[in-house]
Design a binder for these strands. Structure first.
Lengths: 215, 215
DNA sequence: CCAAAAGTGTTTCACTTACACCCATGA
DNA sequence: TCATGGGTGTAAGTGAAACACTTTTGG
């Protein structure tokens, strides 16, 4: 191995797949590109990694800059490095996915420039670069993840009903889920606690609220 | 987004966790570093990504250069990008893991410079950089992987006995595996075919050979 | 008393685990 | 005939899936 500078250095970006649940649908935040290449095309938010920040930190910074939220679920997905993926030159993209809950999502909506918008994941526009591939992969990972872990809670406000949680699963998996089996499975995980509150004033039996047990 | 060159650019390397089974143990290929930093310390093989090659291709090239094998199982693991992980400067490492079967491994042994050696994964020396973390992660992934998929075959020669395959599982998982249940599970996967050959001339009933059904 | 969603148990089926003996061969 | 690893089946237990009715509330 020689000096670092002997080697031509690619640019490194992080690209974010930011998911939320809204309007009974799984949404991803997209940015309309203002310049070439792919001017006018929708793209995943992202940006260059600063020379002195970690990848995770770069992802968190982008999240804050572009969306205005902090402290959300963030996980590295995969690194895409095809030499031709960016026509401007060699750009390696480390992709992350983030889950933004319904509460924080309102902040995002407020900060929405005309060029940033939530789009249905299942009816997304054509994307710039190889971002369609990244999005597909993120959806695949999210689906696996909610089956084996408890990340689903990250998409809901602090207090939620089991029906709301079930709906999140149905939206992500795009298939109906059995109510009784779902409740059994979720409760058996021991990750959520029953609150002494209900979501009241509805024209039917009010639903009990639950909360995620942190850590 | 501005011009690419406006941004200070990190170096990007690929680091390889190359596994094989030998001497009834899971081994990883390590290189003894000839220069600072970490001179004399063992490290994962790796190198810089060329400006016009994909990450996967860079990994395959390293594999060929350092180990002399091609066409082996190769999978991207994770990208490590802590700003301080390399004292020389900002180096982002895209890690891959590779599985080298017993046949090809002999080629490796032949090409072994004094500075490249197979080490037991479970009794590895202190590693340079953050390579211990990378190795741990690779072992974790390999363990998960063999439980859900059929990558185990990648560590064996084309023809193998079920006992040999079982031993691979036991070595990787570091726990005994029930013979009858193992055989049931493997055969049920429908991925291997029974050959009309046995491993003969042993002082006991000869074992039937099997072969992996490609694709 | 009606409409609407909340809440609740049991049976079936598939899959995993535990477990012990006979078989084929070379020496 | 002995030593050695190869090869085989069954029963019990665990977890997933299917499935329908009663409860609570507001209007």
């Amino acid at each position: 191995m020689s000096k670092l500078s002997d080697y031509p250095q690619p640019s490194v970006t992080v690209d974010l797949v930011i998911f939320t649940i809204a309007e009974d649908d799984l949404k991803v935040l997209l940015i309309r590109r203002g310049q070439e290449p792919f001017k006018g095309r929708w793209a995943l938010p992202g940006g260059f990694v600063e020379i002195d920040e970690s990848l995770e930190r770069a992802a968190a910074r982008e999240l804050k800059e572009e969306v205005g939220v902090t402290n959300v679920y963030l996980e590295q997905l995969y690194t895409f490095g095809d030499p031709k993926r960016d026509p401007r030159g060699r750009v390696i993209s480390v992709s992350y996915f983030a889950l933004v809950d319904a509460e924080r999502q309102r902040i995002v909506a407020a900060s929405d420039a005309a060029d940033a918008q939530w789009h249905s994941v299942f009816d997304a526009p054509r994307l710039a670069f190889d971002h369609a591939k990244i999005l597909d992969y993120a959806v695949w990972r999210l689906r696996n993840k909610i089956e084996w872990t408890t990340v689903g809670y990250e998409l809901l406000p602090k207090k939620f009903t089991l029906s709301e949680l079930q709906r999140v699963y149905e939206i992500i998996l795009q298939r109906p889920v059995d109510k009784r089996n779902f409740r059994k499975k979720i409760l058996a995980q021991g990750q959520i606690i029953e609150l002494n509150e209900t979501r009241g004033d509805v024209a039917h039996r009010p639903a009990r609220l639950y909360s995620f047990r942190k850590q």
